[in-house]
Design a protein around this nucleic acid. Sequence first.
DNA 1: CCTATGAGTTGTGAATCGAAACCTTGCGCG
DNA 2: CGCGCAAGGTTTCGATTCACAACTCATAGG
Lengths: 154, 154
Amino acid sequence: MSARDPHSDPAESSIARAVEVIGDRWTVLILRDAFRGVRRFDELATDLGIARNLLADRLRRLVDQGVLQKVPYQERPTRYEYRLTPMGIDLSPALVALMLWGDKHRGGAEGPPLSLVHSTCGHELDQVFLCRHCGEEVTALGIRGRPGPGARPA
Amino acid sequence: MSARDPHSDPAESSIARAVEVIGDRWTVLILRDAFRGVRRFDELATDLGIARNLLADRLRRLVDQGVLQKVPYQERPTRYEYRLTPMGIDLSPALVALMLWGDKHRGGAEGPPLSLVHSTCGHELDQVFLCRHCGEEVTALGIRGRPGPGARPA
DNA sequence: CCTATGAGTTGTGAATCGAAACCTTGCGCG
DNA sequence: CGCGCAAGGTTTCGATTCACAACTCATAGG
């Protein structure tokens, strides 16, 4: 189930490692719901329209991977809900990036269904790349990749 | 092939629409390679270790969806390579977010295999949320969602 | 002619998905 | 007690996809 891919030197790409976690249509949607506050099994099942066996499987994996955790929300009978761990919350930039891309390139004419605002002032937020050295924003074309400390031996 | 999901009101989520494009393990890796400059069929096939029929299928979809385009790189015989369209380039924040998450939560002790730098100054870049009104950076916990113009009728 | 290269297509068994039915624990109720 | 219900799964099984290998096609080079 693991160690399936001898190609595409995994050290070369943290994206490959991230994809092992969220490289699945349902997983992304489950996480989206987790951010929206949908956390219970049945809520997720009906909201997503996912088969229950798949939902169980995906939740199990996400818990195993440390992205979600089971938290009891009642006793007798004990029932759990699935909450994002800090590691899960760290996926928010990725989810947001997908949302913004969907807004821009797959959105209707009416505008985005959801907009992200600064909780303290209520104004809209942008997701940007920042060069702290220059103190400026950088667009996609101003980005360059360079080998980091954990780069390939090849 | 389309219109498969009556649940999870698609208007509620551009993430769902984005996932129809990139909600697949291979698709994400193909795009990563496209950003890295790997653009030819055989290069992709051997670099990723993907089955050739799947690669052909994924490339076809990405082209149909306008994320990649076929560009001839030689004649006689005419051969094409797959390049990112502007729409495809707009996926970079999502790919970067995944990479940074992978670096942080799935990385080895040696540090990230790839680091992103500002092409003009060579210093490292951060991906952040910015409130232009307050002029400050906002963390994940300072983000709130609110219904946008295209929100659900429910 | 023979071989090689690049870009796919085809065929086939194995793995995964999806829908629906079933199971379990523990109420609340008559 | 016996019944029905709710939440959270598990089981079953046919339909779909995946993965791997082999094959095709066009053209170039020796």
